[in-house]
Design a protein around this nucleic acid. Structure first.
Lengths: 135, 135
DNA sequence: AAATTTGTAACATATTTTATTACAGTATGA
DNA sequence: TCATACTGTAATAAAATATGTTACAAATTT
Protein backbone atom coordinates (compact mmCIF):
# COMPACT_ATOMS: atom_id res chain seq x y z
CA UNK A 1 0.00 0.00 0.00
CA UNK A 2 2.50 2.57 -1.12
CA UNK A 3 0.53 4.84 -3.33
CA UNK A 4 -2.81 4.62 -1.57
CA UNK A 5 -1.74 4.95 2.02
CA UNK A 6 -1.81 8.72 2.28
CA UNK A 7 -5.04 9.04 0.32
CA UNK A 8 -6.79 6.37 2.34
CA UNK A 9 -5.60 7.80 5.63
CA UNK A 10 -6.71 11.32 4.84
CA UNK A 11 -10.04 9.94 3.65
CA UNK A 12 -10.50 8.16 6.95
CA UNK A 13 -9.55 11.23 8.94
CA UNK A 14 -11.86 13.47 6.93
CA UNK A 15 -14.77 11.15 7.67
CA UNK A 16 -13.90 11.06 11.35
CA UNK A 17 -13.79 14.83 11.36
CA UNK A 18 -17.20 15.02 9.71
CA UNK A 19 -18.72 12.83 12.42
CA UNK A 20 -16.90 14.01 15.52
CA UNK A 21 -19.37 12.48 17.95
CA UNK A 22 -19.56 8.98 16.53
CA UNK A 23 -17.40 5.92 16.60
CA UNK A 24 -17.32 5.01 12.92
CA UNK A 25 -17.00 1.36 12.03
CA UNK A 26 -14.38 0.15 9.61
CA UNK A 27 -17.19 -1.13 7.44
CA UNK A 28 -18.81 2.28 7.19
CA UNK A 29 -15.50 3.90 6.33
CA UNK A 30 -14.70 1.15 3.86
CA UNK A 31 -17.99 1.86 2.16
CA UNK A 32 -16.99 5.45 1.50
CA UNK A 33 -13.51 4.59 0.27
CA UNK A 34 -14.71 1.47 -1.52
CA UNK A 35 -12.06 -0.60 0.13
CA UNK A 36 -11.89 -3.78 2.11
CA UNK A 37 -12.64 -3.12 5.81
CA UNK A 38 -9.57 -5.05 6.87
CA UNK A 39 -7.37 -2.61 5.00
CA UNK A 40 -9.16 0.26 6.68
CA UNK A 41 -8.48 -1.31 10.06
CA UNK A 42 -4.82 -1.62 9.12
CA UNK A 43 -4.56 2.08 8.39
CA UNK A 44 -6.44 2.80 11.57
CA UNK A 45 -3.91 0.68 13.44
CA UNK A 46 -1.23 2.99 12.09
CA UNK A 47 -3.18 6.05 13.18
CA UNK A 48 -3.66 4.54 16.61
CA UNK A 49 0.04 3.91 16.93
CA UNK A 50 0.50 7.63 16.40
CA UNK A 51 -2.28 8.46 18.86
CA UNK A 52 -4.29 10.28 16.23
CA UNK A 53 -7.43 8.23 16.72
CA UNK A 54 -8.92 5.99 19.36
CA UNK A 55 -10.94 2.84 18.81
CA UNK A 56 -13.50 1.01 20.79
CA UNK A 57 -13.95 -2.71 20.34
CA UNK A 58 -17.18 -4.63 20.59
CA UNK A 59 -20.71 -3.86 19.58
CA UNK A 60 -21.23 -0.25 18.49
CA UNK A 61 -17.49 0.06 18.50
CA UNK A 62 -15.47 1.95 15.96
CA UNK A 63 -12.99 4.76 15.71
CA UNK A 64 -12.97 8.48 16.38
CA UNK A 65 -10.51 11.33 16.26
CA UNK A 66 -8.34 11.74 19.33
CA UNK A 67 -6.72 15.03 18.39
CA UNK A 68 -7.79 18.51 17.45
CA UNK A 69 -8.26 18.63 13.68
CA UNK A 70 -7.04 22.21 13.62
CA UNK A 71 -3.71 21.11 15.01
CA UNK A 72 -3.13 18.03 12.91
CA UNK A 73 -1.29 19.00 9.75
CA UNK A 74 -1.11 17.21 6.45
CA UNK A 75 2.63 17.10 7.00
CA UNK A 76 2.09 14.84 9.99
CA UNK A 77 -0.20 12.61 7.97
CA UNK A 78 2.35 12.57 5.18
CA UNK A 79 5.05 11.47 7.58
CA UNK A 80 2.88 8.72 9.01
CA UNK A 81 2.06 7.28 5.62
CA UNK A 82 4.75 8.14 3.13
CA UNK A 83 7.97 8.98 4.92
CA UNK A 84 9.40 10.82 2.00
CA UNK A 85 8.71 11.90 -1.48
CA UNK A 86 11.04 11.55 -4.39
CA UNK A 87 11.51 10.36 -7.90
CA UNK A 88 12.87 6.95 -6.99
CA UNK A 89 16.08 5.04 -7.32
CA UNK A 90 17.19 2.33 -9.65
CA UNK A 91 16.39 -0.90 -7.98
CA UNK A 92 19.78 -2.53 -8.12
CA UNK A 93 22.93 -1.36 -6.47
CA UNK A 94 24.79 0.63 -9.12
CA UNK A 95 28.33 -0.29 -10.08
CA UNK A 96 30.68 0.89 -7.34
CA UNK A 97 33.62 0.86 -9.75
CA UNK A 98 32.05 3.55 -11.88
CA UNK A 99 32.40 7.12 -10.66
CA UNK A 100 28.84 7.84 -11.64
CA UNK A 101 27.36 4.62 -10.31
CA UNK A 102 29.25 5.00 -7.09
CA UNK A 103 27.75 8.37 -6.25
CA UNK A 104 24.45 8.66 -8.05
CA UNK A 105 22.27 7.61 -5.17
CA UNK A 106 23.86 10.05 -2.82
CA UNK A 107 23.21 12.90 -5.25
CA UNK A 108 19.65 11.77 -5.87
CA UNK A 109 19.08 11.66 -2.15
CA UNK A 110 20.27 15.22 -1.78
CA UNK A 111 17.95 16.29 -4.55
CA UNK A 112 14.97 14.49 -3.07
CA UNK A 113 15.73 15.79 0.37
CA UNK A 114 15.32 19.31 -0.92
CA UNK A 115 12.07 18.31 -2.60
CA UNK A 116 10.85 16.97 0.70
CA UNK A 117 11.56 20.19 2.45
CA UNK A 118 9.49 22.13 -0.04
CA UNK A 119 6.61 19.69 0.07
CA UNK A 120 6.72 19.48 3.84
CA UNK A 121 6.55 23.23 4.10
CA UNK A 122 3.44 23.21 1.96
CA UNK A 123 1.77 20.41 3.87
CA UNK A 124 2.62 21.93 7.20
CA UNK A 125 0.42 24.88 6.34
CA UNK A 126 -2.70 22.77 5.88
CA UNK A 127 -4.59 21.27 8.80
CA UNK A 128 -6.98 18.36 8.67
CA UNK A 129 -9.67 20.87 9.50
CA UNK A 130 -8.71 22.99 6.49
CA UNK A 131 -8.77 19.99 4.25
CA UNK A 132 -12.01 18.61 5.62
CA UNK A 133 -13.79 21.94 5.46
CA UNK A 134 -13.37 21.99 1.71
CA UNK A 135 -16.06 19.34 1.48
CA UNK B 1 9.08 1.24 -14.09
CA UNK B 2 7.50 3.99 -12.07
CA UNK B 3 9.98 4.56 -9.33
CA UNK B 4 13.14 3.85 -11.26
CA UNK B 5 12.48 5.69 -14.47
CA UNK B 6 13.72 9.10 -13.45
CA UNK B 7 16.76 7.73 -11.65
CA UNK B 8 17.72 5.50 -14.55
CA UNK B 9 17.26 8.25 -17.09
CA UNK B 10 19.33 10.76 -15.21
CA UNK B 11 21.98 8.12 -14.70
CA UNK B 12 22.09 7.50 -18.45
CA UNK B 13 22.26 11.20 -19.21
CA UNK B 14 25.01 11.79 -16.68
CA UNK B 15 27.11 9.08 -18.29
CA UNK B 16 26.49 10.52 -21.74
CA UNK B 17 27.56 13.89 -20.47
CA UNK B 18 30.74 12.45 -19.01
CA UNK B 19 31.70 10.93 -22.36
CA UNK B 20 30.54 13.59 -24.80
CA UNK B 21 32.59 12.29 -27.71
CA UNK B 22 31.60 8.63 -27.58
CA UNK B 23 28.62 6.62 -28.59
CA UNK B 24 28.02 4.59 -25.44
CA UNK B 25 26.52 1.14 -25.82
CA UNK B 26 23.49 0.07 -23.84
CA UNK B 27 25.62 -2.67 -22.35
CA UNK B 28 28.20 -0.23 -21.04
CA UNK B 29 25.49 1.96 -19.55
CA UNK B 30 23.72 -1.06 -18.10
CA UNK B 31 26.97 -2.03 -16.41
CA UNK B 32 27.08 1.24 -14.53
CA UNK B 33 23.44 1.15 -13.50
CA UNK B 34 23.51 -2.59 -12.95
CA UNK B 35 20.43 -3.06 -15.06
CA UNK B 36 19.41 -5.16 -17.99
CA UNK B 37 20.56 -3.58 -21.27
CA UNK B 38 17.12 -3.98 -22.79
CA UNK B 39 15.68 -1.72 -20.12
CA UNK B 40 18.38 0.82 -20.81
CA UNK B 41 17.45 0.77 -24.48
CA UNK B 42 13.84 1.34 -23.55
CA UNK B 43 14.68 4.44 -21.59
CA UNK B 44 16.90 5.56 -24.42
CA UNK B 45 13.97 5.10 -26.78
CA UNK B 46 12.05 7.51 -24.59
CA UNK B 47 14.90 10.00 -24.66
CA UNK B 48 15.12 9.67 -28.42
CA UNK B 49 11.42 10.36 -28.76
CA UNK B 50 12.10 13.63 -26.99
CA UNK B 51 15.17 14.34 -29.14
CA UNK B 52 17.46 14.44 -26.14
CA UNK B 53 19.86 11.82 -27.45
CA UNK B 54 20.75 10.26 -30.76
CA UNK B 55 21.68 6.65 -31.41
CA UNK B 56 23.71 4.90 -34.03
CA UNK B 57 22.93 1.30 -34.88
CA UNK B 58 25.41 -1.33 -35.90
CA UNK B 59 28.91 -2.11 -34.83
CA UNK B 60 30.48 0.56 -32.64
CA UNK B 61 27.03 2.04 -32.36
CA UNK B 62 25.51 3.48 -29.24
CA UNK B 63 24.01 6.66 -27.94
CA UNK B 64 25.18 10.19 -27.29
CA UNK B 65 23.69 13.45 -26.10
CA UNK B 66 21.95 15.53 -28.74
CA UNK B 67 21.37 18.64 -26.67
CA UNK B 68 23.37 21.10 -24.64
CA UNK B 69 23.60 19.79 -21.10
CA UNK B 70 23.53 23.31 -19.76
CA UNK B 71 20.12 23.83 -21.28
CA UNK B 72 18.48 20.56 -20.33
CA UNK B 73 16.81 20.92 -16.95
CA UNK B 74 15.88 18.26 -14.46
CA UNK B 75 12.33 19.49 -14.83
CA UNK B 76 12.34 18.33 -18.43
CA UNK B 77 13.72 14.97 -17.40
CA UNK B 78 11.10 14.77 -14.67
CA UNK B 79 8.35 15.43 -17.18
CA UNK B 80 9.68 12.81 -19.54
CA UNK B 81 9.80 10.13 -16.88
CA UNK B 82 7.36 10.87 -14.12
CA UNK B 83 4.63 13.16 -15.34
CA UNK B 84 3.65 14.22 -11.89
CA UNK B 85 4.44 13.77 -8.28
CA UNK B 86 1.92 13.17 -5.56
CA UNK B 87 0.94 11.05 -2.62
CA UNK B 88 -1.34 8.75 -4.55
CA UNK B 89 -4.99 7.92 -4.69
CA UNK B 90 -7.00 5.04 -3.33
CA UNK B 91 -7.15 2.49 -6.05
CA UNK B 92 -10.89 2.03 -6.24
CA UNK B 93 -13.45 4.60 -7.21
CA UNK B 94 -14.74 6.04 -3.93
CA UNK B 95 -18.43 5.99 -3.13
CA UNK B 96 -20.17 8.70 -5.17
CA UNK B 97 -23.08 8.75 -2.73
CA UNK B 98 -20.84 9.93 0.07
CA UNK B 99 -20.01 13.65 0.14
CA UNK B 100 -16.47 12.85 1.11
CA UNK B 101 -15.99 9.98 -1.32
CA UNK B 102 -17.51 11.98 -4.11
CA UNK B 103 -15.00 14.80 -3.86
CA UNK B 104 -11.87 13.43 -2.27
CA UNK B 105 -9.97 12.81 -5.47
CA UNK B 106 -10.60 16.27 -6.75
CA UNK B 107 -9.24 17.77 -3.55
CA UNK B 108 -6.25 15.48 -3.56
CA UNK B 109 -5.53 16.46 -7.14
CA UNK B 110 -5.56 20.13 -6.22
CA UNK B 111 -3.17 19.43 -3.39
CA UNK B 112 -0.82 17.42 -5.57
CA UNK B 113 -0.96 19.98 -8.30
CA UNK B 114 0.44 22.56 -5.93
CA UNK B 115 3.13 20.12 -4.88
CA UNK B 116 4.07 19.67 -8.51
CA UNK B 117 4.46 23.35 -9.02
CA UNK B 118 6.88 23.60 -6.14
CA UNK B 119 8.89 20.62 -7.24
CA UNK B 120 8.94 21.75 -10.84
CA UNK B 121 10.25 25.14 -9.82
CA UNK B 122 13.07 23.45 -7.96
CA UNK B 123 13.95 21.11 -10.80
CA UNK B 124 13.82 23.85 -13.37
CA UNK B 125 16.74 25.51 -11.67
CA UNK B 126 19.06 22.54 -12.09
CA UNK B 127 20.58 21.60 -15.43
CA UNK B 128 21.97 18.24 -16.42
CA UNK B 129 25.36 19.93 -16.46
CA UNK B 130 24.89 21.09 -12.88
CA UNK B 131 23.90 17.64 -11.80
CA UNK B 132 26.64 15.88 -13.72
CA UNK B 133 29.34 18.24 -12.52
CA UNK B 134 28.72 17.16 -8.96
CA UNK B 135 30.46 13.88 -9.78
C1' DA C 1 -26.35 -15.11 25.91
C1' DA C 2 -26.61 -12.97 21.30
C1' DA C 3 -24.96 -9.62 18.36
C1' DT C 4 -21.52 -6.65 16.62
C1' DT C 5 -17.27 -4.88 16.21
C1' DT C 6 -12.01 -4.55 16.52
C1' DG C 7 -7.43 -6.76 15.87
C1' DT C 8 -4.66 -9.62 13.50
C1' DA C 9 -2.79 -13.53 11.04
C1' DA C 10 -2.69 -16.31 7.12
C1' DC C 11 -3.45 -16.80 2.66
C1' DA C 12 -4.92 -15.56 -2.21
C1' DT C 13 -5.17 -12.65 -6.15
C1' DA C 14 -3.96 -8.87 -9.02
C1' DT C 15 -0.94 -5.54 -10.63
C1' DT C 16 3.31 -3.59 -11.61
C1' DT C 17 8.14 -3.78 -12.21
C1' DT C 18 12.09 -5.85 -13.72
C1' DA C 19 14.54 -9.41 -16.31
C1' DT C 20 15.31 -12.53 -20.08
C1' DT C 21 15.25 -14.45 -24.57
C1' DA C 22 15.05 -13.99 -29.23
C1' DC C 23 15.82 -12.14 -33.45
C1' DA C 24 15.44 -8.83 -37.43
C1' DG C 25 17.82 -4.85 -39.02
C1' DT C 26 21.98 -1.88 -39.42
C1' DA C 27 26.64 -0.36 -39.61
C1' DT C 28 31.76 -1.37 -39.24
C1' DG C 29 35.84 -3.04 -40.68
C1' DA C 30 39.01 -7.01 -41.58
C1' DT D 1 31.69 -9.77 -48.50
C1' DC D 2 31.40 -11.74 -44.37
C1' DA D 3 31.92 -11.92 -39.37
C1' DT D 4 31.05 -9.00 -35.64
C1' DA D 5 28.76 -5.93 -32.66
C1' DC D 6 25.48 -3.04 -32.02
C1' DT D 7 20.22 -1.10 -31.85
C1' DG D 8 15.14 -1.81 -31.75
C1' DT D 9 11.46 -4.24 -30.32
C1' DA D 10 8.30 -7.96 -29.22
C1' DA D 11 7.12 -11.71 -26.44
C1' DT D 12 7.48 -13.91 -22.40
C1' DA D 13 8.91 -14.94 -17.63
C1' DA D 14 9.96 -13.95 -13.00
C1' DA D 15 9.90 -11.20 -8.99
C1' DA D 16 8.15 -7.82 -6.14
C1' DT D 17 4.50 -5.24 -4.32
C1' DA D 18 -0.18 -3.99 -3.47
C1' DT D 19 -4.70 -5.24 -2.60
C1' DG D 20 -8.31 -8.40 -1.24
C1' DT D 21 -10.35 -12.29 1.41
C1' DT D 22 -11.24 -15.49 4.97
C1' DA D 23 -11.17 -16.70 9.50
C1' DC D 24 -11.48 -16.26 14.16
C1' DA D 25 -10.23 -14.77 18.98
C1' DA D 26 -11.21 -11.02 22.02
C1' DA D 27 -13.98 -7.20 23.50
C1' DT D 28 -18.14 -4.74 24.43
C1' DT D 29 -23.08 -3.65 24.32
C1' DT D 30 -27.79 -4.71 24.89
Amino acid sequence: MISGKFAITIHILTLLHKFPNDFLSSEFIAGSINLNPVLVRKEIANLKAHHIVESKEGKNGGTKLAVNAAELTLKQIFEMTFESIGLGFAKNQPNPDCPVGKNINQHLEALYSEMNQKVSAQLEGISLEDFSNQF
